[in-house]
């Protein structure tokens, strides 16, 4: 009885896995077949690279890749610096008003940058960062989530190490740089993976603050490329989609274990 049940369960798990992955598999298959073959499910149809060639020629993809790469790097560097300093202040320094400010920071977990698009757009334009990569990245740099994560990581560092470094003559920044940052390396890695995948995939805000191919990230480029008014056929859209998700997807498949662990570490406090 329980053996039968077990088989049913296995079947269910595999069926769900297949359903879950099928949109991706199908788009992959379609990307390498002509549109007529793809929409007719012609399984025996020959493979072709034409869609990829058409898609590649249809938009400045290399520029988009570069923009996304720059955006992700700028955001990550900014986040590392700012959340390290703020996290350290919250974890290890006593100052008046700390609890109140910390609550303000936590509030930002719920005041989503996505919701404030209207005024943030005004702000970015006012400080002259409209249509720049810095302007796309800036609202995300002081991430409340990152500050919280760093605070937790620094809190778990034993105070003895801190005192020992101080006895050795290290100043505050020396202690932060030589003791805390190296010990929090796993947290940095986890945060980096979450941040990179979030901003690689971000769409609404970049759509609003970019206005030229020189700053547009991949997601925005892809949405413009695939817009119905451009009349691109579905195999070519599949090819473009595959192309733009390939780097992150391959990285994910290779570093799957670390990736999943990073998400776990970031999610569970």
């Amino acid at each position: 009885m329980s053996a039968i049940f077990r088989h049913i369960e296995t079947f269910g798990a595999l069926l769900l896995a297949f359903i879950w992955i099928s949109p991706l598999l199908f788009a992959f298959w379609a990307a390498f077949h002509s549109t007529t073959d793809a929409v007719n499910f012609n399984v025996m149809a020959p493979w072709t690279l034409d869609n990829l060639r058409t898609a590649w020629a249809g938009a400045p993809w290399l520029r988009y890749f570069l923009n996304t790469f720059l955006l992700v790097s700028v955001v990550l560097i900014g986040q590392f610096v700012i959340t390290t300093l703020a996290g350290f202040a919250f974890a290890k320094v006593q100052f008046p008003g700390k609890d109140f400010v910390f609550i303000l920071v936590l509030m930002q977990l719920f005041i989503l940058p996505e919701v404030l698009i209207v005024e943030n757009y005004v702000m970015v334009s006012r400080i002259g960062l409209f249509d720049t990569i810095i302007g796309v990245g800036m609202p995300y740099m002081a991430s409340a989530f990152g500050i919280f994560l760093m605070r937790q990581a620094f809190k778990s560092v034993p105070i003895e190490l801190h005192d020992a470094a101080r006895v050795e003559g290290c100043g505050w920044f020396g202690i932060l740089w030589r003791v805390y940052v190296p010990l929090a390396r796993p947290t940095y890695l986890a945060y980096a993976l979450v941040s990179v995948s979030t901003h690689w995939n971000n769409f609404l805000w970049p759509l609003i603050v970019t206005n030229s191919p020189e700053t547009r990230p991949l997601t925005v480029g892809l949405s413009i490329f695939g817009a119905p008014e451009n009349g691109v056929d579905i195999s070519v859209i599949s090819a473009a989609t595959m192309m733009s998700i390939a780097p992150l997807l391959i990285a994910f498949l290779v570093f799957q274990r670390q990736f999943v662990q990073a998400f776990l570490r970031a999610g569970i406090k």
């Binding site: 703020a86 202040a89 919250f90 006593q94 100052f95 920071v105 404030l116 005024e119 002081a142 500050i147």
Partner: peptide
């Protein structure tokens, strides 16, 4: 001294959060 350090460390985050979260709200 701790109070000064604390606020100095916090200032970049405080400025950005004010600019892109609190002020816009």
């Amino acid at each position: 001294r701790q109070a000064i350090y604390g606020w100095l460390l916090l200032s970049p985050a405080a400025i950005l959060l004010t600019t892109f979260a609190f002020y816009p709200s």
